[in-house]
């Protein structure tokens, strides 16, 4: 009953935090990545091939962008359960505009204009959703899980209501061609992921907004007392998260050539899994885009490697979950070990 163990991470957050804050905190993740790479290279003949790399670059962007949309609110101590709903709705809107105003065969410049219009509308929708969510989180004080649960339900509801649950397709040829292009041999959608990741990374690490975001994640009141407009920062957090969803929507259209409220629903929890695996503190305050990207690479590598073994995707997801548990456990023990050692000395 009365154990005198160190108290569990009740107040100050998880022991993860200690690990993630250490310099070289990604060392474990990188070695896991390299280890897996070597393992698969050894076990699967021809694993280290251009084909594998290509499938890697085509499969990663959607999950990667959605995870980026999740990491921003996670850093601020919140959560955005509406990212998939936002992405789908933005994609639906863009496909609808393109399909209605520029049916296949519409010529050059007018198709170009329609595409621009669609992009603008999709972006605007995401910004609006983000501002609304952010305002609700910042100014009502309701827990972000509940707010975004509500907005998710609302957005999904509107999408399903308007489309009757059907998928929309019909993208202008120009758009499809651009989406499928591979400048310098790299798929455009992968370049998009890299660009957005760099942007989010820079924003989180090198701007007042990013610093405020992490500070709010650790202690919103102390941050407010330090003359930071925490309300505005929170609105910005959810707006940024939604804007990243806009890019995810582009990738969604490029990948499926259509849009539907049903696409990618199963990714929601995987994004949280990836973020935590990448060292993002689920209580907020700590995390890096680099860690997230390494974690995504690990997940994708596991999935491609197992795929080559002929392992079903279901088993892959199970292994992802198990990986998360193992990594978190390893981090917990890694954080506890030094303390124990010190006490014995």
């Amino acid at each position: 009953m009365a154990d005198a163990r160190p108290l569990p991470a009740a107040k100050q957050g998880s022991p993860l935090r200690l690990f993630a804050g250490l310099p070289g905190g990604h060392l474990g993740l990188v070695s896991l990545l390299v280890g897996l790479l070597l393992l698969f290279a050894f076990l699967v003949p021809g694993f280290l091939s251009v084909a594998t790399l290509n499938s890697f670059m085509y499969q990663l962007p959607l999950l990667g962008l959605l995870s980026l949309a999740m990491i921003v609110p996670l850093m601020s101590g919140g959560l955005n359960l509406a990212i998939i709903a936002t992405t789908s709705q933005s994609a639906l809107l863009m496909v609808w505009i393109m399909g209605t105003l520029a049916p296949p065969g519409t010529g050059g410049s007018s198709a170009f204009l329609v595409i621009l219009l669609a992009l603008a509308a999709g972006l605007l929708l995401c910004v609006l959703i983000g501002l609304l969510t952010g305002a609700l989180v910042a100014y009502t004080g309701v827990h972000p899980i509940l707010v975004t649960l509500g907005t998710k339900s609302l957005i999904d509801g509107v999408s399903i209501y308007l489309t009757r649950g059907m998928a929309l397709s019909g993208v202008p040829d120009a758009f499809a061609a651009a989406a499928a292009s591979t400048p310098l041999g790299v798929p455009l959608i992968f370049l998009l992921l890299v660009a957005v990741a760099v942007a989010v990374g820079v924003i989180l690490k090198h701007t007042p907004f990013g610093l405020a975001c992490a500070m709010i994640g650790s202690n919103p009141e102390a941050t407010r007392y330090s003359a930071v407009d925490t309300g505005r920062v929170l609105v910005g957090v959810y707006a940024l998260s939604s804007v990243v969803c806009f890019f995810a929507a582009l990738v969604m259209i490029a990948t499926f050539n259509s849009a539907s409220a049903d696409y990618a629903q199963s990714y929601l929890l995987v994004t949280i899994l990836a973020a935590v695996l990448g060292g993002v503190d689920p209580f907020g305050g700590f995390g890096t885009v680099t860690g997230l990207m390494i974690a995504l690479a690990i997940l994708q590598l596991l999935s491609s490697g197992l795929n080559q073994f002929g392992v079903s995707t279901y088993l892959t997801v199970a292994i992802w979950g198990a990986t998360l548990i193992l990594v978190v456990v390893a981090q917990t023990f890694a954080a506890r070990l030094p303390a124990r050692f010190r006490r014995r000395k």
Partner: peptide
């Protein structure tokens, strides 16, 4: 309790493990 994983993370992980194994 024993591994000190936050409940939301632990149960998300367990959800993907048990459901995926079921589907598999």
């Amino acid at each position: 309790h024993h591994l000190r994983i936050t409940s939301i993370i632990a149960t998300i992980a367990m959800m993907s493990v048990s459901f995926s194994l079921l589907m598999y």
